[in-house]
Design a protein around this nucleic acid. Structure first.
Length: 318
DNA sequence: AAACCCTGCAACCGCACACAA
DNA sequence: CTTGTGTGCGGTTGCAGGGTT
C-alpha cells in the first residue's frame, strides 16, 4: 500500500530548530494543545514537517521534561526495565517521569552500555559477557538455540502487539512455561528467550532448547533478582505464537490462569498484573486489560529482596 | 594553533499500527 | 474488506563541542 509523504519535503526546513521556531511551536500548542501534527506546522506558521514538530515538542519543548543528568536510581531502573522490556524505549520512558524515549535511548547507547560492559554484562542480553562460551554449571538446562542468540539488526525489534506478545523477541528474563494442570512437573519449559529474533513458539520443543539457563539473578547478582514468567498453558491446547487480547479474553472463559509472573524473594507475594506492577497504563502494554487486575488470568506475584527493586516494582494494593 | 578524533545528543527516516471512511 | 491518514516507535545519522595529539 503506497502512502503519501508526511509532508512536502521541498517546502520544509530540516535540521536544528531555531529559537523562533521553538517559540512558535510552544505558543501554538499552548493555545491549541497537542494533536493533529500534520496540520500543525501550517497552522503555526512553521516550515516544518509535522513529525518534526511532534518530535521537537515531545523530546525537547514539553514543559514537564526533566533536564539534566540521570541519577543512579534512574540508571538502575533503566537497566532493570531494559532487561524486562528490551529496546522498548517508550515503555521504559513511561516509567521515568520527565524522561523521553529518545533521551533514554541515547543515554543507553552512550552511557549504560558502557557501564554494563564494565560490569562484565552484555547490555543486550543482560547476561555475563562470557556466558556465550560458558554454560553455567548450576543450570541444568540446554544451551540456547539460534533463536535465542542476540541479533542486532535494524529491523529485529518490532513493536509489541497483540500478535507478537508471546514472541519474546526482546524479553531477557526467564520464561517458565508450564502446563496449567501440572505446574511443577518435569514437563515445564524454561526459556530464557533473550532477544530471540524470531517468534518463540511457546510451548514447543524448540522453546525448551532455547534456554541458556542464565537468570536475571545471575545478570544482576547484586539485586538478587530472579524473575520468572510462568505461563500456564491450557492442558489440552498448544499455545500458538500468535496471541492477541481478544483470544486471551476468549480463553479466559475456558482456562485460567494462563499467565503467572513471579518474583522470588523475601517478601511474600501479592498478586498483581505485571503491567500494573510496572506502573504501565492499561493501554500501554497491558494485555490483561483489566482482567489481570482481578488476579485470575494474568497475575504477578512481586517480591524482591533489593530495596531499590522493591521500590521500582512495588506491588500495588488491589 | 591546527588537525584530528571521539562523544553525546538532537533530529531524521522508515516502518507499523490504529482507526476512520 | 480495502484503502488512506495520522501517529508513534525504534534505529540511524549528522553535527557540534570537547579532548587529544
Amino acid at each position: 500500500m503506497g502512502r503519501s509523504p508526511c509532508c512536502e519535503k521541498e517546502h520544509t526546513n530540516k535540521g536544528a530548530w531555531t529559537k523562533e521556531e521553538d517559540e512558535r511551536l510552544i505558543n501554538y500548542i499552548k493555545l491549541h494543545g497537542e494533536g493533529c501534527w500534520r496540520s500543525l506546522p501550517k497552522a503555526a506558521g512553521l516550515l516544518r514537517c509535522g513529525k518534526s514538530c511532534r518530535l521537537r515538542w515531545i523530546n525537547y519543548l514539553r514543559p514537564d521534561l526533566k533536564r539534566g543528568n540521570f541519577t543512579e536510581d534512574e540508571d538502575e531502573l533503566i537497566i532493570n526495565l531494559h532487561s524486562l522490556l528490551g529496546n522498548k524505549w517508550s515503555l521504559i520512558a513511561a516509567r521515568l517521569p520527565g524522561r523521553t524515549d529518545n533521551e533514554i535511548k541515547n543515554y543507553w547507547n552512550t552511557h549504560i552500555k558502557r557501564k554494563l560492559y564494565s560490569r562484565g554484562i552484555d547490555p543486550q542480553t543482560h547476561r555475563p559477557l562470557n556466558a556465550a562460551s560458558a554454560t553455567p554449571a548450576t543450570a541444568p538446562v540446554p544451551p540456547p538455540s539460534p533463536a535465542a542468540v542476540p541479533v542486532a539488526t535494524s529491523s529485529s525489534n518490532k513493536k509489541i502487539n497483540s500478535d507478537t506478545i508471546s514472541s519474546s523477541n526482546t524479553l531477557t528474563h526467564d520464561v517458565v512455561i508450564t502446563n496449567n494442570s501440572n505446574n511443577s512437573n518435569g514437563s515445564q519449559l524454561v526459556s530464557n528467550s533473550a532477544y530471540a529474533n524470531t517468534a518463540t513458539k511457546v510451548g514447543t520443543d524448540e522453546d525448551s532448547n532455547s534456554s541458556s539457563g542464565v537468570t536475571v539473578e545471575e545478570s544482576f547478582p547484586h539485586h538478587q533478582l530472579n524473575l520468572d514468567l510462568s505461563i500456564g498453558l491450557p492442558s489440552s491446547h498448544q499455545v500458538s505464537s500468535s496471541v492477541n487480547p481478544e483470544k486471551l479474553k476468549a480463553q479466559e472463559h475456558d482456562q485460567k490462569p494462563h499467565v503467572l509472573y513471579k518474583w522470588y524473594g523475601n517478601i511474600t507475594g501479592q498478586a498483581v498484573c505485571l503491567c500494573y506492577s510496572l506502573g504501565l497504563q492499561s493501554d500501554q502494554a497491558c494485555y490483561c486489560k483489566g482482567v489481570g487486575a482481578t488476579a485470575t488470568t494474568t497475575m504477578v506475584t512481586t517480591t524482591a529482596t533489593d530495596s531499590n527493586l522493591y521500590r521500582f516494582y512495588r506491588p500495588m494494593n488491589i
